[in-house]
Amino acid sequence: MDKESVRIEFTVNNKEVALDIPADATALHVLREMLSLTGTKEGCGIGECGACTIVVDGKAVNSCLMLGAQLDGRMVTTVEGLATESGLHPLQEKFMEGHAVQCGFCTPGLLMSSHALLEEKENPTRAEIEKAIAGNICRCTGYQQVITSIETAVSERLDGENR
């Protein structure tokens, strides 16, 4: 059973993948280096910046703190999986419109954290939004335009549902 290479099968952005990975490879390494999904970033490698955030089975996690082997059997969404054929995800649109993107390196992580929140909560409060992205360090924006963009995405979704 113990071997230095591990076979994993999982779903990433609605595609099934199967591959052999080194046992100690992080999920981040598997995504970036083996699947060329470079939208997910490495900012610190130790869970202190959130740039590598992905959504696994509906939950935001730091892919640098997860073994690739742990992806086996999971449903994974990365920033590349947010947009659909019908267009950008509302969060992506609002981030663009709301000037929530400056250098853009933390952006994928922020999008994934807020995406997980919006999947979990219909109408998150500002405090809940802040709590959801407190593990995502942004050095450019000071977060204000990020929070506003997420709030706009929430309120527009609610408006859409009430219409």
Binding site: G47, K59, A60, G135
Partner: peptide, 9 residues
Amino acid sequence: FASAQIRNI
């Protein structure tokens, strides 16, 4: 505790 991402695992 840490961050949402860490609390999740």
